[in-house]
């Protein structure tokens, strides 16, 4: 059985399309990532799947329940962490958790094993008000609250946005552990580097899915040649690279990446030569390792 099936779902606000015919499936027990920038439609998709919004077109099922007809069943069975960490700022850590446990008809004890790893980190602060926690701590508490009723599917809408890199990394470790408990997870993020933490990802932009694959296959099927280039003056480098035919170039970390279109072949020395002819020095050209970000940029072109 699939954890989530979305078929051609569409949603518009005041005539402006936010989601356009999006289809994907999430297998049971996998971490499925929706990767894309703000305004790509991620939140709308989450809200449709969690029965908070009605789709304008298409259909979707969560754990074989229909998102329109069986909304009550879905609400009983899923965990949801909205984009804004939804906690009561004036309640303590423990009070928040206890409250959400009761709302979901369970107790902290009953499913403690699920949240244990996360909660031990929060325990020293259990009498602190949620509003006084750091971003990373808030995020962990929100996850505990979303998990406390042992949901079948967990929806996490941009859980790592605005959280520092240390907490982000810890968060993904926690998701890996949850996966072992056979909870299916749908997670969205604007950070490309987090894509590799997912089993499968959908790259999404302007309400449409660009590609769905495992991170490994996505990188493998990149197709184009990719070079990484460096020179003494980065600004000039990017200017000069724009004039190389049949290529796309863009800044990438301390390098610039040059993507050569499929039907053209080019080798490193050609590029180096071109750069030197244009007065750049300390030129360095090599094969680059393809990342999800390169794939995304390639799909956007």
């Amino acid at each position: 059985m699939k954890a989530v099936i979305a078929e051609n779902i569409s949603k518009q606000y005041d005539g402006k399309p936010a989601v356009e015919k999006v289809s994907f499936e999430v297998n049971e027990g996998e971490i499925f990532g929706l990767i894309g920038p703000d305004g790509a439609g991620k939140t709308s998709i989450f809200r449709i799947l969690t029965t908070l919004l009605l789709p304008d077109g298409g259909s979707a099922q969560v754990h074989h329940w229909d998102v329109v007809k069986d909304w009550r069943a879905i609400r009983n069975a899923v965990g949801y962490m909205p984009g804004k960490f939804s906690l009561y700022q004036d309640l303590t850590v423990e009070e928040n958790l206890h409250f959400f446990a009761t709302v979901f008809n369970t107790t902290i004890q009953e499913n403690y094993h699920l949240i244990e790893d996360i909660y031990v980190q929060l325990e020293p602060f259990k009498n602190r008000r949620a509003g006084k926690l750091s971003g990373g701590m808030k995020q962990k508490l929100a996850l505990c609250c979303a998990l406390i009723h042992k949901p079948k599917v967990l929806f996490l809408d941009e859980p790592t946005t605005g959280v520092d890199p240390v907490s982000r990394r810890e968060f993904w470790e926690m998701l890996k552990k949850l996966k072992q408990q056979n909870i299916s997870i749908v997670v969205s993020t604007p950070y490309m580097d987090e894509a590799s933490m997912c089993d499968r990802i959908a790259l999404i932009q302007s309400g449409s899915i660009l590609s769905i694959d495992t991170p490994q296959d996505l990188v493998k099927n990149y197709g184009n040649q990719l070079f990484r280039v460096k020179a003494n003056d980065r600004y000039r480098l990017l200017e000069v690279l724009k004039s190389v035919p049949s290529t796309k170039s863009y800044a990438f970390g301390e390098y610039a990446h040059v993507s050569v279109e499929k039907d053209h072949q080019m080798d490193a020395s050609e590029i180096a030569q071109h750069l030197q002819q244009n007065g750049l020095t300390e030129v360095e050209v090599g094969e680059a390792e393809v990342t999800i970000e390169d794939c995304f940029i390639n799909l956007l072109h």
């Binding site: 920038p37 305004g39 604007p190 990017l238 863009y250 800044a251 970000e293 995304f296 956007l300 072109h301």
Partner: peptide
Amino acid sequence: GGVDPLTRRQFWE
């Protein structure tokens, strides 16, 4: 923050 990788790069340019 929150923009696609291409737009981000245009910004950095």
